[in-house]
Simulated scan of single mutants.
Amino acid sequence: MTDHATPNLPSRDFDATARFYAALGFTESWRDPDWMILRRGGLQLEFFLLAELDPATSSFACCLRLDDLDGFYAACRAAGIPEASTGWPRLHPPRLEDWGGTVGYLVDPDCTLLRLVQNSG
């Protein structure tokens, strides 16, 4: 197995989180009362239950490094996630950053920031 890391993210409600990410192509591969794992191709997101999370004060974040950023972003738009500068969930369109990479942003219903980074090469 290749070394890898999986983000551990908060969820106020596993059912709501699973529905949100299912619209983006993720499927549930594990759940117990305190932990849930969602997968989409080579992506894996792990969620812990944090019912008392206040999304307005959340500082959770991770990067999704994607071979097809445009395709994933299109799936987010097709799921009805709006491009907006405030509120959640929301999207920020991919753009070329000063360091040379292309990055978009997804903020989920628990206000976790997912940086959508196009893999290079």
Rank of each mutant, 00 (worst) to 15 (best):
A56C: 14
D108L: 01
P55E: 00
W99V: 14
R65I: 03
Y73R: 01
L106Y: 02
M1V: 13
S85Q: 15
T57F: 07
R65V: 00
H4S: 13
C62V: 07
G42D: 14
D3M: 14
A74Q: 05
A23G: 03
A74C: 05
F26H: 04
P93C: 04
L50V: 14
A74L: 00
D13F: 08
T6G: 08
A5T: 12
M1E: 14
D15S: 11
A75Y: 00
P7I: 09
L49T: 14
D110C: 03
P94E: 09
W88N: 02
G25E: 02
F60L: 10
G121T: 12
G104E: 02
F20H: 02
R90L: 00
L114K: 00
A84I: 12
Q118K: 06
F26L: 03
L43Y: 04
L64Y: 01
W30M: 15
W88T: 05
P89T: 06
C62W: 07
D32Q: 13
W88F: 14
F60H: 14
I81Y: 00
E83W: 06
A78Y: 04
T102F: 06
L106C: 00
M1S: 14
L116F: 04
H92K: 10
P55Q: 06
A16W: 08
H4I: 10
D13V: 11
R39L: 14
D54L: 13
G100P: 10
D3P: 10
F26T: 04
F14Q: 09
D98R: 15
L24D: 08
G87E: 03
E97D: 15
P93T: 01
D34C: 08
T102E: 11
A84W: 12
D68T: 05
F47M: 00
W30P: 07
R95T: 11
P7C: 10
G100I: 11
F47N: 01
A56F: 11
E28K: 13
A61T: 02
F47D: 03
R65S: 03
D98H: 15
E83I: 11
E28M: 11
Y21L: 03
D68A: 03
P109I: 05
G101M: 15
C62Y: 10
L53V: 08
L66Y: 07
F26E: 07
A78M: 00
L24C: 07
Y21H: 09
P55Y: 02
V103S: 04
A56I: 11
N119Y: 06
Y73M: 04
A18G: 09
S29Q: 12
R39H: 15
L43D: 07
C111N: 10
A79L: 01
L43K: 06
V103H: 01
A79K: 02
C111Y: 10
L43N: 07
